[in-house]
């Protein structure tokens, strides 16, 4: 009886659920892409300018370190509201999936920069020394040693980042941000249609699991350290 109801509801809202799942994936992947474009140089600069890095620059490291820490400590929901003017400026409106990408990128960039920093930090100092002994320049070391050697760890980090951004994107539902979170808020929170909310939660769990599974599989497959 209950199951039949659920299937009915599912059928009634199928088109909407598919569309919003698409929106969630759209927000998540586009945000991840932009966040990585910004975080990659940031993470590299953090590693290189550290006191024990390849090109120590104490004050620059300090500055970036503080910015990243502040960025990470602002709760996403507050950030979402706080940067609405910026969002409107960039996208033209402050609601909907595309608009949500802006706060997602702003929130994820410092987080991802830290992930990248810690991945690059793991690269064996000896391998870097070997490259230096061959006369490698700083950029060669970054692009041919640091990043390729940290490949597996970076991919694991990427998988974590996508999962985190996906769950952030759901929070944007409270400001009509589009996607499955929006559906959950609209139906579950405002209309007390618990079934729809339940379905969206299940869908999100499946998405996160799937991303996790595929991401880890790829990371492991490309790792040449343990064959």
């Amino acid at each position: 009886m209950w199951l039949a109801d659920l299937i009915n509801i599912l059928q009634d809202h199928m088109a909407m659920l598919v569309k919003e799942t698409g929106n969630t994936l759209y927000m998540t992947f586009v945000s991840t892409l932009f966040a990585y474009i910004l975080a990659m140089p940031l993470g590299v600069v953090l590693v290189v300018t550290r006191e024990d890095g390849l090109y120590p620059l104490k004050s620059l490291y300090r500055l970036l370190d503080i910015i990243v820490n502040i960025g990470r400590s602002v709760p996403f929901l507050i950030l979402l509201v706080a940067i609405q003017p910026l969002t409107t400026l960039i996208v033209g409106k402050s609601y909907g999936s595309t608009a949500t990408i802006v706060p997602l990128v702003v929130a994820a960039t410092p987080f991802i920069a830290r992930l990248i920093e810690s991945s690059l930090q793991e690269v064996d100092q000896g391998v870097i020394e070997a490259a230096e002994s061959m006369g490698a320049s700083l950029s060669t070391i970054i692009f041919k040693v640091l990043i390729p050697e940290a490949k597996t760890s970076l991919m694991v980090g990427g998988t974590i980042a996508i999962g985190t951004i996906l769950s952030y994107s759901a929070m944007a539902g409270f400001v009509a941000g589009g996607g499955l979170g929006d559906v959950a808020v609209r139906y579950g929170f405002y209309r007390y249609e618990g079934e729809i909310m339940l379905i969206t939660v299940v869908l999100m769990v499946i998405l996160v699991q799937l991303i996790q599974f595929i991401g880890m599989k790829i990371a492991r497959k490309t790792d040449k350290r343990a064959i």
């Binding site: 000896g126 391998v127 020394e129 070997a130 002994s133 061959m134 050697e149 790792d223 040449k224 350290r225």
Partner: peptide, 14 residues
Amino acid sequence: IGMIFQHFNLLMQR
């Protein structure tokens, strides 16, 4: 000037 090390220091992903 070539250099070799105690722990080899090879690039593990190559």
